[in-house]
């Protein structure tokens, strides 16, 4: 059987917020290592890779590997029945066609459980090659979210240019052009610092819509890491973490737009 107890059930709500715009349904793959999900959006432009480590759970048991296909809109409905600070237990029997979510209030005086039907989903796993990225940008996640939101008003695409000077986000459309430049600042211990690890300058262009969807994960982590190399998909990574627990990560891959 599978059983996983998450001390902060609200984490799963935030994870769902971070993937529900991109995916209608997805398989959660359970193994001894933890819970993993890998899925592309319908148009095969972006990919979500979620990893929740077994160690992040208060209790974790997985006797045999299983894949639980879930409708994410249904899962959102169930998670709405919980409070953010409820303790969440997810459990399923081997070969079951339902998964059970149990919510316990912090003081233990309310327990609710919900069964959700599982789906048989065609798994289409992709092999993602190991890549040494030409530039890796680490920045505050809410700054990333604001930049993407602001520039999305201008055009359908956002160019990200990374160089020694820093990072420049640009978008052009009917009303004009927007540019937002971030300088590297190395002020130690600063929460709002931007760090660029650069092997070579890179400029790539991406669809604003997807970047906006990725930014929904900003609630999971204060930092976001953007990794870019010429002519390969962008990686946007958020740690899934609280001050006292490292749950894993959510990574988004986004295919670049091609120059005309």
């Amino acid at each position: 059987m599978f059983e996983a107890r998450l001390a902060e059930g609200g984490i799963l709500k935030k994870v769902l917020d971070a993937i529900k715009e991109l995916l209608n349904e997805a398989s959660f793959d359970c193994s001894e290592a933890g819970l993993q999900l890998q899925a592309m959006d319908n148009s095969h432009v972006s990919l979500v890779s979620l990893n929740l480590r077994a160690e992040g759970f208060e209790n974790y048991r997985c006797d045999r590997n299983m894949s639980m296909g879930m409708n994410l809109a249904s899962l959102v409905k169930i998670m709405k029945c919980s409070a953010n600070d409820d303790v969440l237990t997810i459990k399923a029997q081997d070969n079951a066609d339902v998964v059970t979510f149990v919510f316990e209030s912090k003081n233990g005086d309310r327990v609710s459980d919900f069964d959700m039907k599982l789906m048989n989903l065609d798994q289409e796993h992709l092999g993602i090659p190991e890549t040494d990225y030409a530039c890796v940008i680490k920045m505050p996640s809410n700054e990333f979210a604001k930049i993407v939101r602001d520039l999305s008003q201008f055009g359908e695409s956002i160019a990200i240019a990374c160089s020694k000077q820093g990072v420049k986000f640009s978008s052009t459309g009917d009303i004009g052009t927007g540019n937002i430049k971030l300088a590297q600042n190395s002020s130690a211990d600063s929460d709002d610092k931007v760090v660029v690890d650069l092997q070579e300058p890179v400029t790539l262009t991406f669809a604003s819509r997807y970047l906006n969807s990725f930014a929904k994960a900003a609630g999971l982590s204060e930092k976001v890491t953007l990794s870019m190399s010429p002519d390969v998909p962008l990686v946007v990574e958020f740690k899934v973490a609280t001050s006292d627990n490292d749950y894993g990560y959510i990574r988004y891959y986004l295919a670049p737009k091609i120059e005309d």
Partner: peptide, 14 residues
């Protein structure tokens, strides 16, 4: 025409 690539170009199905 949208010049958006898909991920299939870069990643291998397994």
């Amino acid at each position: 025409k949208d010049n958006q690539q898909t991920l299939i170009v870069y990643f291998i199905g397994t």
